[in-house]
Structure formats: structure tokens, C-alpha cells
Design a protein around this nucleic acid. Structure first.
Lengths: 134, 134
DNA sequence: ATATCAGTTTGGAATTATTCTTGTCAATTG
DNA sequence: CAATTGACAAGAATAATTCCAAACTGATAT
């Protein structure tokens, strides 16, 4: 059985209490929080932590493939601990984001790819959520 | 025949030299520039223009449907004068963006839509462009 | 168990992108 | 022509993020 600690060690970066706190906060988190939201939450239990640590940790975890950065809301990055390829449905009013796990066929012809080595794709569906449409 | 001026008048905002300069810069522009890039370019011919005017104009043009705002590169918005629905292929190295005009079937079941009133979608393909892969 | 050191944290300054405010001017209206 | 409105410039203010230098610490090798 793999414990949290073992799993976290496999990420390949030095474990510190601050990083553990961020990892625990992100574990299973479906709210796609921004750095600021993460900082607010984690610094409650860790009052001396600086925002720089949050940014450093998120960048390190992204580079190790432990989470993904979402470029969905203008002006800020958001983070998702689910690193499997999936898509997102975004409310243009409240910026709420929900996950879409359906697979789509998205082949580009060579001529369209224009010499690109294509690594992946991401679909954003946008609309108005039920709360905001009331 | 519709002249530029007539076409621009149809946008529905008051035309000013500054706005014309921005419209002319964006006309047919495939480079998906940021506000800063637009400011740099347009202020060469219009040295007294302020960044606020660029932001105001881009916001106004977006609201009038004369261009679209792209949330693709973290940390800054980019703008596209092509308002038809299309997708983008982004180089993760140099942030170059090229247009993809192919149509894809992207239906979501009602259960996945989760009460959302879906208005549209946008696919970003990402990869490494030929220049950067060298 | 301890020393070592590369990697990490902190707090604040700096930077970047964007928005806001204020005074001014130009165009339109009455 | 006076009043109103809309737009502009310049710079201040804000928000998100990055950078920096000094102090600290987890992991590894002794």
C-alpha cells in the first residue's frame, strides 16, 4: 500500500511541511483554485508561509507533473490536481469550473498542424451555470 | 461597396482617430496581439495615446462583438479580430498562436452539462512549433 | 547521531498587466 | 451659446506574479 508520504516522495522534490500542506489541500480538490485561494486556505494552518512559497511550490509541482495549470480565467492562473487529460465547462458569470471527462476525436491534418509537434489539447466549454441563470 | 469607414461605423461606437488606428492595426491581423503589443505598435503613429485608451477600446470592441479576447497565455489577454468561431494551436515555447478553422462535433450530454446553458466552446491544441523544435 | 549542502522558505521589493481616477477637451444637443 | 455627454491622457492604484538575498532545513553521506 502506498501511503501519502510515499506517494508524495515519488513526486521527486524535497518534502517540506509547506509543500505537504499544499499537496493535502489540493488532493482531490475539484474547485480549481487560484494561487491566492490556495495561499488563503493553507496560510490559516501555516501563518508564516509566504506567497512566494505557494508560487514556487505550484510551479515545482506543475513541472513534476503532479498538477496542471489552467489558463482559463483572464488575469490569474488556476490549478487542478487531476492531471489526467480532461476538459472544462466554465461559467462566464461566476467563473465556476466543472470537469468534463468525455473523450472527443480531435485530429488535425498535417497541413493544419503547420509543422507543429502537437502534444495535447484542451476544450473549454463556456456558458451560464444554473445558479447564475436565475 | 462597403468602405472601411462604413464598416467601422456599423460597430456602433463613436469613431475617433485612436480607435481607427487600433481597428486598422487589428484588421486582418493574425498574430493575436496583447494589449501591450497593440499599444506599442499604434503609439508609434500616435505618440500621445495612453494605454488606458487601448484597454478601453479593446473592451468596447469586444463588447460590440468586433473582436474576441483570448485567454490562452497566462498573465495576459490577447485579441483576435476574427470573430468567427475557430480554434487555436499554441506553441508552448514561443507562445505563437495559429488559427484552426476545422469544425469538430463537441456535444455534451445533459447530465454532463450539469444545468449549464452552454454558449460555445474553444479548443486549444498545444505543441512545439517548427521553429522552436530546432 | 551529525555534518553537510543543495534546495527551500521568507519577507519584501520589483515587475507586469490591468483598472481606476481626475481633469480636460471635443462633439453633440437644446 | 451653454450644457451635456463621451472620450482622452496621464498617472495613481490594484492585482497577480516574479525576483532577490539571507536564513533555514530535509535528505544524504558520513
Amino acid at each position: 500500500m502506498i501511503t501519502h508520504m510515499e506517494k508524495y516522495r515519488n513526486i521527486g522534490i524535497k518534502l517540506t511541511p509547506q509543500r505537504l500542506a499544499i499537496l493535502n489541500y489540493m488532493e482531490g480538490n475539484k474547485s480549481h483554485p487560484s494561487a491566492d485561494t490556495i495561499y488563503s486556505a493553507v496560510s490559516k494552518k501555516f501563518p508564516t508561509m509566504s506567497v512566494a512559497t505557494v508560487y514556487n511550490t505550484l510551479e515545482a509541482l506543475k513541472n513534476k507533473g503532479a498538477l496542471q495549470e489552467l489558463t482559463i480565467e483572464p488575469g490569474k492562473k488556476r490549478y487542478d490536481p487531476d492531471i489526467t487529460s480532461h476538459h472544462h465547462l466554465i461559467c462566464t458569470e461566476c467563473k465556476d469550473i466543472i470537469d468534463i471527462f468525455k473523450k472527443f476525436k480531435l485530429d488535425l491534418s498535417d497541413s493544419m498542424a503547420n509543422g507543429f509537434d502537437i502534444k495535447g489539447n484542451h476544450i473549454e466549454f463556456y456558458g451560464i451555470c444554473s445558479k447564475c441563470s436565475k
